[in-house]
Amino acid sequence: MKTPTSAFYRTPVKFRIPTADNLVPIRLDIEIDGQRYKDAFTWNPSDPDSEVVMFAKRTVKDLKLPPAFVTQIAQSIQSQLAEFRSYEGQDMYAGEKIVPIKLDLRVNHTLIKDQFLWDLNNFESDPEEFARNFCKDMDIEDPEVGVSVSNYSLILNENIMLYFHVTPAIAFAIREQLYEIAIQSVVSARESRMNKKGRRGFEYTPVSKGGATAVDLVKLFGQKSSVVRKRKEWDVYEPIVDLLSNEEVDALEAKEERNFR
């Protein structure tokens, strides 16, 4: 590891996405006049903001969307970037933290379920490479799903247009979860600081919602335990890839549509 490891185990880490590239996962879901545009991609926060408008214009032009989308897209991206930047420079967590990441996503006809551990202190981790490996190992060869996958489609009224972004869906999902964990860590770090100062009237609520709780390192990696999982646990951590039929996809999409409305 290139970074001075010993140093950052002592002091809290400043907020960032705990991967090699500090990329912000951005999700867009915009509906104007019955036209709905859904997309997901990553954005480099150090890029100049003028890029955002350029990007919005290009996207609208490429997808032949009505011009009203431009401001909406740009605004959405801007606000998400602003949220990300609001956390920058704050302390996240100190010490080692390994979290379970759960994948449960659908990419067109492919359904992926998986679960694995991710080290939040490994700033050389590469979700994109992981995703590439995953697709290679699991034989996901469908050109639409393959290496460059996106599970978000652009729905234009009746005719469904599929828009695939470069970011693989798997990598995006990992980034999104890491982002969420990072935010939670900042919040909890802030709260524990407040509590230490002894402010009254501040109710401490455990922030460990969902699957963001870090695993017990001592239990897993201590002297007594083996890092090889028990055979019955293998199924839990085994990735599952399902290919869906057209009808199933339609049904799922209809369901998602209903949930959205």
Partner: peptide, 18 residues
């Protein structure tokens, strides 16, 4: 042998395992 096969049986950061 593929990495995906291996990682389900091992506890640890997937990047490191990789």
């Amino acid at each position: 042998l593929t990495f995906t096969e291996v990682r389900k049986s091992l506890v640890g950061d997937v990047s490191l395992l990789n």
